[in-house]
Amino acid sequence: MGPVELTFSALPAHVRTARLIVTAVARRSGVAEALLDEVRLAVGEACSRAVEAHQRHCPDEPVRLELSGTGRRFEVTVSDTVPSEDAGRGLPAEPNGLEYALGDGTADLGLAVISGLADDVEISTTPKGVQIRMSWPAEEGVPPQS
């Protein structure tokens, strides 16, 4: 199945929309029903992380999502445009009180959830931003449904 690309404003409300789209495309790409929950959660985590990073550093820049179902894998790449020197491990270390501390803990939990759920994960940090690529097995030759 051909690729699907999605860019969305870095708003928390859009993360749910992104999850719904990813789940729909994953199903259409032949990902087993039993895995769809994992896809939905892992991609949601990656999108949340990107949205939060953008809100801190570049709220006007959109978050980018690429989905492709080539071969026997369904692959998702979530890209932010927060430069790596700002992102560090994807998190700024600004001691701004409890809410910030909790935010940091949450993002760490997010990466733990992604690595626990995605079948295959690759996180690359470049000067342009952070890319999280995840993939799951998919059946080939799922006929398109109208």
Partner: peptide, 16 residues
């Protein structure tokens, strides 16, 4: 119906 790490973070914060 759905819980992600943000929700986990809120629960951990509440526990603290």
């Amino acid at each position: 119906e759905f819980l992600d790490s943000t929700g986990l973070g809120v629960l951990v914060g509440g526990l603290k």
